[in-house]
Design a protein around this nucleic acid. Structure first.
Lengths: 259, 259
DNA sequence: AAAATCTGTTGACTTAAATCATGGAACAAC
DNA sequence: GTTGTTCCATGATTTAAGTCAACAGATTTT
């Protein structure tokens, strides 16, 4: 019953032949194979080299390590190179509320820009690495490189759009829709990263998924079971296989980014 | 049973003695009494005058008029001077999903930045007026005025934080919490605007509130009834009076911006 | 490798909110 | 002012998801 699983971080990396491996800590932005997803989009070679000067590359983290904590002073934003991260807030009673899932090439930490404090925490869901971009240096550079300013405006705009999509997903309540939309979202983001949109590892536990989607872990589990029974997906623990994308889209009523 | 209601737009305006009235269409950013809430924060007089040159002031709208529609080309962001607006998306089946409520001094339309298309629509909930700020001119100006760039980064960051707060509100499901949090949010935003945090008009219908909060209009109505019965609020149709803020905070478990 | 802990599935039962339905109040149009 | 809509409140009933509980697989720890 075990399908041929998606390549994990290490395999994924070893495939990268022509371009430098994005888990190699010393590779510059210009050579990073995530460049086309990350901050550098829309910059020319010279601009990228300026960016390179302020980026602190190749930090590594293992599962459970914090990128930053709720309330920490905001200094930097972070670009994910490998692995996956969740962001969350702890409410007054200590219950943690997942607010985001971030994959390689995506940018983390923009929640700190408005107050100079991070509004939530970010932790690694598995072994991973990232680049740190000191924000005030990025601001200075943006003032000198209009295309970088533009890029960053757009990046923040994307975060806004993404949050609002999530917001509409959470108001229109069916549990199955939410789970289906999450799967489709990961699928399409994998597609962008040139990974299989059909087989992937969902790096969160059922409890984390539930928290993110506003449902209980039992409901998540039951939805997976139901979708399996209908042969729409195959679920083996965290390994997910999408068997019938269009059926899944029908369940999701096509929200969130779709491939 | 009718309390002394909050001042409406016109009254509010007529009170403004020393500073120019913000509903007067010709007043510049430097003289607008919303300046301290709006884009100009953190700018000096000269910088504001540059901003003033690109701002198209004093557009008026009546209830139901669109500021922009979902899918429209994105050209400008909008600063609200008076009145209130909702943003929403229509899902495939035509059901409209409210995504935001915007009050004077707040900025609207940032959902279009990433794609050059608006991701949702914005309509006036009552008679109102706004300033239009052409985005590409704002970008150019930002590249020349670092403090404006910084201000706009922060503004977008605020939108992200706001959306994420809303997101956590919608995942932790109790209907009463959601309604209470909305009331407290409006209360504190009114407070910032130097209006009564205790009496205000909630410009949305029950259906719109429900759509925004991810519950049905009947549930909204019932929650209002329950909160009234407990003497936490007094509700007369759209006029709301907060009688016991701390009880209301307890119901909300203090989420969203609180005063 | 055994023990302990975490994680996932499934069942039985409960509950909060959705849905359906009605009548009345507010508001807009004529 | 009268008529027609839209909007709101409330009751009765249904339902999807939450809660509680037991157990089986995984994963870590020692």
């Amino acid at each position: 019953m075990k399908p041929n699983y998606q390549l994990d971080v290490a395999d994924d990396c070893s495939r990268a032949v022509k371009r430098a491996c994005h888990t190699n800590p010393s590779v510059s932005c210009g050579d990073c194979r995530l460049g086309e997803l990350c901050l550098p989009i829309a910059l020319d070679a010279q601009e990228i080299s300026h960016l390179d000067e302020i980026v602190k590359r190749g930090r590594n983290l293992k599962k459970g390590d914090y990128l930053y904590r709720e309330g920490d002073e905001f200094n930097s934003i972070y670009a994910i190179r490998a692995g996956s991260f969740k962001t969350f807030k702890s409410s007054w009673d200590g219950v943690e509320q997942v607010t985001g899932l971030y994959l390689p090439g995506e940018i983390l930490g923009m929640d700190g820009i408005s107050n100079n404090r991070h509004g939530g925490s970010a932790v690694a869901l598995e072994t991973g690495s990232f680049c740190e971009i000191p924000f005030h240096q990025l601001e200075e550079l943006s003032a000198r490189i209009p295309s970088l300013q533009g890029r960053f405006f757009r990046l923040m705009g994307q975060e806004i759009v993404k949050d609002q999509q999530m917001l509409t997903l959470l108001s229109s309540n069916a549990a199955e829709e939410r789970v289906a939309a999450l799967l489709l979202s990961i699928s399409s983001r994998n597609h962008r990263r040139k990974l299989s949109p059909f087989n992937f590892r969902l790096p969160m536990t059922r409890a984390e998924i539930g928290s993110y989607l506003g449902i209980t872990l039992e409901t998540v589990s039951r939805v997976f079971s139901r979708l399996s029974k209908q042969n729409i997906v195959a679920v083996d623990n965290k390994e997910i296989q999408l068997l019938d994308i269009s059926a899944l889209k029908a369940v999701a009523k096509v929200k969130m980014g779709c491939s």
